[in-house]
């Protein structure tokens, strides 16, 4: 077999179901753990962040209004397509994180399994977290969890796929839509995940992925009035307090998860609960 020249991929943003370059025209080089050039990634800007929020807001009524069964099937479909791309993710995770192929395999497998785990929660979370309220009066009262809205997710900086999936899947499983800022230095698995999402029946805008400088993009998301919640997992330590202060401007829900979170551990419900509201409904009983 002759050596052939491979077709290199252009890594772009993922906004509203499309793959635009950054409107700023900027890109930055992504290197592997040893410093060798891998690709140029788009360097997302404030305007890209605002476009992503607009896309997420537009997608919210449809995605939050979809049946839980439907969301579960779409998310399971994502896992199917992830499985089909397994080899590509192993290569990218190994290169991005500088781990051996065997370790990369276990990280990718865990990531796919994590996605399946969250896909199964879509139609169970209301049963587990909601219920009837035995109020002292002639009323029927029940409480249900509902999605918070548009969630800005600062993805973990280290764990480029397993960490990313561990923070994105719980946000959208419950019907939120997301604007995700990928790992700054390890963004390639996030762009490939975007390609998976784009080909898995997930409506455009439910997940939007920005690559670039986290510290540059995050403040615009934290202060954006149409963002309802903020996940600080991948926020640089020096920016966390400022981001929280900005988020207070519109009383955003802030998940102050630490960057040191170990994503190989089995998750619990905390990340699902973090971006859920509780709605209590009352109606009188009588003839």
């Amino acid at each position: 077999m002759s050596d052939r020249i491979s077709v290199a991929k252009t890594y772009k943003l993922y906004i509203g179901g499309a793959f635009p370059r950054s409107e700023s025209g900027r890109s930055y080089p992504v290197v592997d753990a040893k410093g060798a050039f891998l690709a140029n990634a788009a360097q997302g800007s404030r305007k890209d962040a605002r476009d992503a929020v607009a896309a997420a807001r537009k997608a919210f009524p449809g995605w939050s209004g979809a049946t839980a069964y439907n969301r579960g099937q779409v998310l399971y479909r994502v896992a199917e397509v992830l499985e089909g791309r397994r080899e590509q993710f192993i290569t990218e995770v190994a290169a991005s994180e500088g781990v051996a192929v065997k370790k990369a395999q276990s990280l990718v497998d865990a990531a796919i399994d994590r996605w399946v785990w969250y896909a199964g929660w879509t139609d169970k979370v209301a049963t587990v977290l909601g219920g009837a309220n035995p109020v002292a009066g002639p009323y029927f009262s029940f409480s249900l969890p509902e999605p918070t809205g548009v969630v800005a997710v600062l993805a973990p900086q280290q764990s480029s796929l397993l960490g990313l999936i561990s923070v994105v899947a719980p946000v959208i499983a419950t019907g939120n839509t997301a604007v995700v800022v990928s790992s700054q230095d390890r963004p390639l698995p996030a762009v490939t995940l975007s390609e998976v999402l784009a080909t898995s029946d997930l409506p455009g805008g439910v997940v939007n992925v920005l690559t670039g400088r986290t510290a540059e993009i995050a403040p615009w998301l934290a202060s954006h009035a149409d963002v309802n919640a903020l996940d600080l997992t991948g926020a640089p330590e020096s920016t966390r307090a400022d981001l929280e202060r900005s988020a207070a401007g519109t009383v955003k829900r802030v998940l102050r998860a630490r960057p040191s979170e170990d994503f190989t551990r089995e998750p619990d419900l905390a990340r699902l609960r973090a971006f859920l509201e509780t709605k209590t409904v009352w109606h009188p009983m009588g003839v």
Binding site: A136, G137, S141, T280, V281, H283
Partner: peptide
């Protein structure tokens, strides 16, 4: 909204969670 009263209003009970969406708090 965090509490919806249908054909009634301003009912409160310790068993029924109360609180807001958005800028009504968390």
């Amino acid at each position: 909204a965090g509490v919806v009263w249908a054909n009634t209003f301003n009912r409160f009970d310790p068993t029924a969670p109360f609180g807001g969406y958005q800028e009504s708090g968390f």
